[in-house]
Computed example of a mutant assay.
Amino acid sequence: MTRHALIAWAAFACLCLSAADAALAQGGPSGRAPPPEGEAAIAQRMNANTVTVISGTPGGTYFRMASDLAFALDDGDALRILPVLGKGAGQNAYDVRFLRGIDLAFVRTDTLDQLRQDPRLRNIESHIAYVARLFNDELHVIASRDITDYRQLEGKKVSFDVKGSGSDYTGRAMFDGLGLKVEAVNVDQPTALKLLAAGEIAALVSVAAKPVAVLTSITDAERYHFLEMPYTEPLMKNYFPARLTHDDYPRLVAAGESVNTAAVGTILASYAWPERSDRYRRIARFVDAFFSKIDALQQPQRHPKWNEVNLEASVAGWSRFPAAQEWLDAHRGGGAVSAATRQALRRDLRDRAPDLRPGERDRLLDEFMRWRASRQ
C-alpha cells in the first residue's frame, strides 16, 4: 500500500467511523487478529506509546494528579502514562529541559523566569512549551501565634521545603516581591513542622494546591496559624490573589473567616520537540487522549483540582505545544477526533499494512489528521 493510498484510505475510513468505532476498537471490520509480534516489535511499540510525566513528592498534589492521568488515560499498549517521582516544580523545569526520558512535567507560570535567571541557559523559550494551564498553587505561611504579621519574619529562619522544590523557588520569589528578607532553610515539610514546634524556625512555607496534606495534619490550632500575605504590585507579573478558607483548613481557619494570600499557576509542560520527531508524535498522542478525556479526570474520585482546568486557557509569555493548539483549533471548528476513533484508525492501519513500522503508521495518521483539521 502506497503512502497516497494509505492517506486516501484514512479519509474514507474517517467518514465511515461514526457507525463503526466499536467494531474497529475490537480489531477492525475484518475481525482478523493482527499478526504475531516478536520481542523487538513489542519493545518498539511499548516505548513508542509510553509517556513519562515527572511530578512531585509522594502524597503531593502533582504526584496524585500524575497518577490520575495514568489511570484515566491508560489504553493498554496504545498509550501508557508513567508517573515519575520528582522534587517539585523548581527541579521539574530542569528535568523537562535536560533529563533524558522525560516527556512532560508539572511546572509553574514563573518557570521561564526561574530558568532565565540561570546564566548557563540560553533561549529557554524555544525549548519548553506548555500543553495546558492546569490550576493554582497557593502560598501557605504557617507560624506560631506570637507572630501576627508577616513582617515579623524579617531576618528569621523560614523553611522553604527541600531545595529544588516549587516552594523553594516560588516561595522565595514571593518573599522577594514583598521585600521580605529571611534566612532560608531547606528541609522536607514533616521535618520543618518539628523544627517549628521546637522553635528552631519561625515559619514554614508551602506553595502547593490547597488543601496541603501535611498542613491538614496540624491539630494544635491554638499554637499555629496562617499568616496573611498581601498581594502587592511586584507580585502581579507572575502571581494571583488567593484565599485560604475554613473549608480548606477547618482546624486552622475559623468558620466564616479567610486568610488572604497569593497563588501561582501550574502548567503541564513539554520539551519543544520537532514536529516530525517520534517524541513529538508521542506527546501528540497524549494530548489527544488528555483533551478528549478531560471529563473523566473531573470525576469525584479524582483530585478536585482537575475541576479548575480550562484547556483553552492561555499562559502569558509561553508558547503552546503545536499539537495541543491544533487539537483546540480542530475542536472549536467541530473537527475534533476522539482518542477512541484515532486508536481505531491506528489499529486498522496496522491490520491492513502490517509491514509498516509503527512510526511510519503514526506519521501517516498524523498527516491525515492535520489535513482533516485544515479541511474543517
Rank of each mutant, 00 (worst) to 15 (best):
Y169L: 07
H127C: 15
A197L: 09
L365Y: 09
L139P: 04
R251D: 12
N123E: 00
L180H: 05
I267G: 01
A23G: 11
D74T: 06
A269I: 04
G101M: 00
D113M: 04
P211A: 11
R64H: 10
D77K: 15
Q91F: 03
S217H: 09
A11N: 03
A22I: 05
N123T: 02
A202R: 07
F226A: 04
D68G: 13
L268V: 01
E257F: 11
G28W: 03
G88E: 03
A340P: 09
A13R: 07
F106G: 04
D75M: 06
P358D: 15
L17F: 15
P58H: 07
G27C: 00
S30P: 00
P250C: 01
V84M: 14
A255V: 10
D366N: 11
S165M: 05
A93G: 02
K237Y: 02
F98L: 05
L134G: 00
V205D: 13
G155L: 10
L215P: 00
T341E: 08
P322K: 05
L356W: 11
I81V: 13
N310V: 12
G38D: 14
D351F: 15
Y94Q: 06
Y169R: 05
A353F: 13
F135G: 05
A22H: 03
R332P: 04
E275H: 08
Y280M: 09
L328K: 01
G86N: 03
E308K: 09
W273D: 07
L252G: 04
G333Q: 11
L364N: 15
Y239N: 01
D351P: 05
R346K: 14
V96A: 01
D118I: 00
E367V: 11
L365D: 07
A339D: 15
A22D: 04
L180K: 04
L356M: 13
D75A: 14
V264H: 01
A33N: 04
P300V: 10
P300Q: 08
T232V: 07
S18L: 06
L204T: 11
H4A: 15
Q301E: 11
V207L: 07
N238R: 05
G76S: 06
K210D: 08
L104Q: 01
G166P: 00
S206I: 08
A202T: 07
A330P: 00
I142M: 11
D366R: 09
R251E: 14
E228M: 12
S165N: 13
I201E: 01
P241W: 00
R122Q: 15
Y94K: 06
H225V: 10
L244G: 09
E125I: 03
E37C: 05
Q152M: 06
R80D: 01
D348G: 13
R361Q: 09
Q343N: 14
A78T: 14
P58R: 06
T341D: 07
S159P: 08
K157V: 13
S374G: 03
V185H: 15
L153T: 01
T216Q: 15
I7C: 00
A10R: 10
T216D: 12
A10W: 15
